[in-house]
């Protein structure tokens, strides 16, 4: 649960796109991820720990981590023009 809110964070990891770089395991300050050597992919093991810092979201090279229940622009400054374009990409 995100500190100070009632919102539950859900981490969506697309393991088909995961390249096994382990960068999410390295950057996560609260050890949400573990690395599965046999499958060469990361997996979410302690989702409840998540504080919504978005470190994994931004470091992931194949951008295969998405977070539900966290605002991408509320706590972190985002460019409104860029947000508009990003929402219209097809």
């Amino acid at each position: 649960m995100m500190k100070g809110t009632d919102q539950k964070i859900k981490i969506l990891l697309d393991d088909k796109a995961c390249r096994g770089c382990q960068l999410c395991v390295d950057v996560c300050p609260v050890e949400v991820f573990t690395f599965d050597k046999a499958r060469n992919t990361a997996s979410v093991t302690k989702e409840d720990n998540c504080i919504g810092c978005l470190s994994c979201y931004y470091i992931c090279p194949p951008t295969c981590i998405d977070l539900q229940g966290v605002s991408y622009s509320k706590n972190f400054y985002c460019d409104s023009e860029g947000m508009k374009i990003a929402s219209r990409l097809i």
């Binding site: 697309d14 796109a17 390249r19 096994g20 770089c21 382990q22 060469n40 090279p61 194949p62 951008t63 295969c64 990003a86 990409l89």
Partner: peptide, 15 residues
């Protein structure tokens, strides 16, 4: 999806 090119690349990301 709005994934990056890495998502479709078959190379392994090793340290």
């Amino acid at each position: 999806t709005l994934r990056s090119v890495c998502a479709k690349c078959n190379r392994r990301m090793d340290k």
